[in-house]
Computed example of a mutant assay.
Amino acid sequence: MKKKAKALSLALAGVMMLSLAACSGKAPEKTEAPADTTAAQSSESAGGTETTAAKTADGKQYKIGVLQLVQHTALDASNKGFIQALDDAGLNYTVDQQNASGDQPTCQTIASKLVNDGDDLILAIATPAAQAVAGATSEIPVLVTAVTDPAASDLVESNDMPGGNISGTSDLTPVKEQISLLKKILPDAKTVGILYCTAESNSEIQAKMAKEAIEAAGMTAVDYTVSSSNEIQTVVTSMVGKVDAIYAPTDNTIAAGMATVAMIANENKLPTICGEDGMVKAGGLATYGIDYYELGYLTGLQAVKILTEDADVSQMPIEYLPLEKCKLSVNEETAKALGIDLSGLK
């Protein structure tokens, strides 16, 4: 009798839920991250997006805020991977997707909004976005991704033991291996220009690592920096005739403006080795880099532990993708335009 009564209760509850859905006029919508071709803009600039995942058995629903610095392939992929991990875990949540369009003041405005909304967890994608959220809350659990060195960026006490309300994943790329790739493709290269944005601590760390690797390989490294995307065309043009190759790390400003970099570099037969696959697809020559979708997925798994297992974010180490997760990526069209044979790399 107890089993029959329980079954009847569940059936009646199901009917009531269906009736409520019919009254609302729509069923719950499953969450999706922004597609590679469309960014979810901030509510201040272009309207944020908020969607709801299907309900799970425990009925608890979590509010998650996402602040992405800018739209480009790598950050979009990490966003998508994060959301997929939540879905695969069957998490019941709403997500407020916000994009700052590369503007730091907008990052701060959005960070304050997400904190004031009382989110259960905030994801910050890229270093400037993470710094904005870190400055807005010391209580809400915050996960960061696409940040090279959270400790060096003053986001955590240490990468092994964050010690506060922030943890996440690092997109530290195999810089030494990328410079080795450059040397293999361009054995006669003598001078390498390192192209990055000085506004990103993430990039300064990689630039220093690249300089050490370039000099260790017997070449000369020269920094070419921009403070904003408006300077990319001028700076890249100034590199022509002065360097034999360009190295561009996983810099968000350069990645977003990679089409401009490639246009000038390729027209002047100047090969560009990039920090990540999206930059190669945008016209760079090659990279040996991490998979940002996998990085975002790893961050999503951390979120699940925090929300459903009460994992202590202060004790959660910054995680990294293993070297075997890195992959070679080449742009055959760019190689053809530059007259470079990459067949030996396959």
Rank of each mutant, 00 (worst) to 15 (best):
Q104N: 15
Q104I: 15
Q104G: 03
P105F: 08
C107N: 01
C107M: 01
Q108F: 01
Q108L: 03
T109G: 14
I110D: 00
A111F: 02
S112V: 08
S112L: 09
K113C: 05
L114S: 07
L114Q: 07
N116E: 14
N116H: 10
N116K: 12
D117Y: 08
D117N: 15
G118E: 08
G118P: 11
D119V: 12
D120K: 07
D120R: 06
L121E: 01
L123H: 04
L123N: 04
L123Q: 02
A124G: 07
I125R: 00
I125Q: 01
T127P: 09
T127E: 04
P128W: 00
P128Q: 06
A132N: 03
V133P: 01
A134W: 02
G135S: 10
G135Q: 06
T137Q: 13
E139V: 15
E139A: 15
I140D: 09
I140Y: 10
P141N: 11
V142I: 13
L143I: 05
V144P: 01
V144H: 03
T145M: 11
A146D: 14
V147Y: 05
V147R: 02
V147I: 13
V147C: 06
T148F: 05
D149G: 13
P150A: 11
A151N: 11
A151R: 09
A152N: 13
S153E: 10
S153L: 08
D154G: 08
D154S: 15
D154I: 02
L155G: 02
L155K: 05
V156W: 05
V156I: 10
V156R: 05
E157M: 09
S158Y: 06
N159V: 06
D160M: 12
D160K: 13
M161W: 09
P162K: 04
G163K: 12
G164I: 14
I166R: 03
I166D: 00
S167C: 13
G168F: 01
T169V: 10
S170T: 14
S170Y: 04
S170I: 04
S170R: 08
L172G: 14
L172S: 14
V175W: 01
K176C: 07
K176Y: 06
K176N: 13
E177A: 12
E177M: 08
S180T: 09
S180W: 03
L181S: 04
L181F: 04
L182M: 11
K183A: 11
K183S: 13
K184I: 02
K184N: 10
I185D: 04
I185K: 07
I185M: 07
I185Y: 04
I185C: 08
L186Q: 05
L186E: 02
L186R: 04
L186V: 03
L186H: 02
P187I: 07
